[in-house]
């Protein structure tokens, strides 16, 4: 094809219309942008990385301590010189735990970036004990409350 074809020369004199201002504004606003990760402020980072894990650990420790204390309080106390359980002391024969409620408290992120959901869990403990004295079974029911971290799956 000749470089000086009069038809081509005439066509090339036509210049496509400019983009209207309204469309230009719309296209300008559509500029591709990287979806940057959410910027975490310094105090928020300290809160997520350190304060919440520490607070969670403290809650778990207190909860565990309270449970252990309560259990110890219910344990039969040995009398001095008895050398073990007394003859009439109850012997646990069956124990079952029932989950009563599980309430999410929040989510924390450990320093290794593993997220945990903190759960407030309440259990009902059914215990059946039998004493040697009368051989009858006695049922007890106690509630137990725990604050536990549950690891969340990350992909």
């Amino acid at each position: 094809m000749s470089d000086h074809d009069p038809i081509e020369d005439a066509l090339q004199k036509l210049r496509p219309s400019e983009i209207e201002p309204s469309l230009m504004a719309r296209l300008s606003a559509a500029r591709p942008r990287n979806e940057a990760p959410e910027k975490i402020s310094a105090w928020r980072e300290v809160l997520l990385r350190w304060l919440l894990p520490v607070a969670t650990s403290a809650c778990v420790a207190v909860g565990t301590f309270a449970v252990l204390e309560r259990r110890r309080a219910h344990e039969p106390r040995d009398t001095p010189g008895s050398g073990g359980a007394s003859a009439g002391s109850p012997v646990p024969v069956e124990s079952q735990d029932y989950l009563v409620s599980a309430r999410p408290i929040g989510i924390v992120v450990a320093p290794n970036q593993q997220p945990y959901r903190i759960m407030d869990v309440e259990w009902l403990e059914h215990e059946t004990v039998r004493t040697d004295a009368d051989g009858r079974a006695h049922h007890t029911a106690t509630t137990r409350r725990e604050v536990i971290p549950v690891a969340l799956e990350i992909y």
């Binding site: 219309s17 230009m24 500029r31 990287n34």
Partner: peptide
Amino acid sequence: EPSSDEWRSWLRTSGP
């Protein structure tokens, strides 16, 4: 990611 100027310049020159 194109800068605002880069993007607008491209729209002005090639957009039509």
